[in-house]
Design a protein around this nucleic acid. Sequence first.
DNA 1: TCGTACGGATGAATCGTTTCAACATGAAGG
DNA 2: CCTTCATGTTGAAACGATTCATCCGTACGA
Lengths: 346, 346
Amino acid sequence: MGWEHDNGPKVRIMGTANIKDVAARAGVSVGTVSNVLNDSPRVAPESAKRVRAAIADLGYVRNDAARQLRAGRSNNVGLIVPDARNPFFADVALGAEEAASGRGLSVLTGNVDGNADREAMYLGLFEEQRAYGVLISPLRNVEPRLEALHDRGIPVVQVDRVARGERISSVSVDDVVGGRLAIEHLLGRGRRRIAFIGGPAGIRQVEDRHRGAVTGLAATPGARLERIDTGAQTVLEGRRAGERLRARPPRRRPDAVFAANDLLALGALQALVMAGDIRVPEDIAVIGYDDIDFAASAVVPLTSVRQPARTIGARALELLLTEGEDPGVGAQQIVYQPELVVRESS
Amino acid sequence: MGWEHDNGPKVRIMGTANIKDVAARAGVSVGTVSNVLNDSPRVAPESAKRVRAAIADLGYVRNDAARQLRAGRSNNVGLIVPDARNPFFADVALGAEEAASGRGLSVLTGNVDGNADREAMYLGLFEEQRAYGVLISPLRNVEPRLEALHDRGIPVVQVDRVARGERISSVSVDDVVGGRLAIEHLLGRGRRRIAFIGGPAGIRQVEDRHRGAVTGLAATPGARLERIDTGAQTVLEGRRAGERLRARPPRRRPDAVFAANDLLALGALQALVMAGDIRVPEDIAVIGYDDIDFAASAVVPLTSVRQPARTIGARALELLLTEGEDPGVGAQQIVYQPELVVRESS
DNA sequence: TCGTACGGATGAATCGTTTCAACATGAAGG
DNA sequence: CCTTCATGTTGAAACGATTCATCCGTACGA
């Protein structure tokens, strides 16, 4: 190459070295360096040592973009969650991350925060990045979009929502059953005027849980279900809904509240007991959904419908792997059953 | 090219089309397609229309790896959080995401879950990906690592921790002041035997808050601070610590608990009041840290030290931008002041 | 008529890695 | 001495987008 001597000005700025520089410094070819990087067995120990020394000297770090370009796909799994502030999804993420580590995959999470545009943005991002796969708990129905990813060779698994079509896999919990469990529990406690507090209409989880509640109610004559819509599924919105109930004259209040998730339930619970004139569960029973950690330490420990969040995340990632390895296998729908956790609030 | 006719077998499998295919189909050069993709002004409307039609027909999606390879950096900002289950970090993330959107950047979050290996893994990942920048709330001191990223041209901002060196920017809240605020509040309520419950020793936030507590205590003779170490900063660990306190004979119990974060505080609070023989705050006052949403809806609404989580995230991202645009500017250390939020638990 | 300016379009070079057919070397076997 | 085999190593091709010097027409002014 003609610059063995006078290496002063040839020194690259630290951190810009590429595989060629490493090869030159170690006195081997780029192919050999690449073999060392991917610890292929076909490298003599002596060469490997020199290569590793050169890497350390130059502060070389592999350029993943080039690697991906060549490979055609990346080793990142995209996880798209509707609301990172909901601990339920943090748990799902944890399950996925645990399953991914050790298999050379990394999970990168995109937080949609209830915004459909951002959901589309992250889907586009992972598509452009040719992610190894995508896990998504969609806000609304985006299956056409997901099938497009699938066709591009990016495995997709829907989390917390059963896929309608037959091409996308999913891992979920039966929310209709969960809603029914909740309502039957309240009915069993003698409650008849029940309020359902739920996030923006159209959100699948909300609708399914509501539907389950309606179903469960049908068998009991005289039982009523009122629906209170909220703008989002947050503690704040729950509090607002609770305040609206508290503002009513006592006899127009429900005798039980079923919230579509624990954030709403905790907010509502707080608003109800705040003034002290309403007792939970005596006057109004409250039940939530997800059984997040905070449910147990609420003003009144919260009855809730538990979902196996971590298991869901882990299982979803495993489905992704099987599809990634063998794209031929058909889609699978895995449905877990929810579990009622009774505490003092009901 | 010789295949204008007989386009049957030439049709690419949907989703594998590249920019050349688009160019061929639109009857223009790849350069022109690229110009359309990056909406450069130098394209005749007519050509642009044909290109867009071709893109739609072929289901073309840009390959980000190739784009990044050429560009030398990506448009993704990596956010590394120590514990996604702590709503505080979800809020920080939200702040960063809001600041990023609209500037063509996406935030991808890596959850370390208290595991230093995974922290290193995500740092390596974002380095290999040549991320636009990295925001990190480090578990322990990783500044050497961060400076390496910095030298490679990847801006780094430490979140929730003041940088020691002068090369890395940071956005944080003064945890020593926060610890002092908490302890002074408890002292002001007449408490003298205080227990500090904190995550694994060595975690910076824990140590700073503890240090602040010790400082605040010094002025009051007769006041004692006991330290109870936990293995992690979770609700569960907090509950365990609370149970240990409850198991003591009444006179050996503290008269106040200061927890290093709200998760610990909520767990401890729950354990303390569970049996009913301990009253909060009469027998034992409890104060937490972060003022997460759930603090207000706890068994006994929790007094806490508030940090402006969203602002921190947003500000950190802005620092990243200024460094990204002009790498010459020096590092900045932004420190916010914490704020005491008094509720019923103290 | 010639020169020039300008809006558009072109396509080869480039980014950094992996892959793989081909090659070099030495040892073992006939 | 000639094959055959195993073990390492080589380096050019390929991945797909962006960039930029160059080129093509056309219109306008002198």
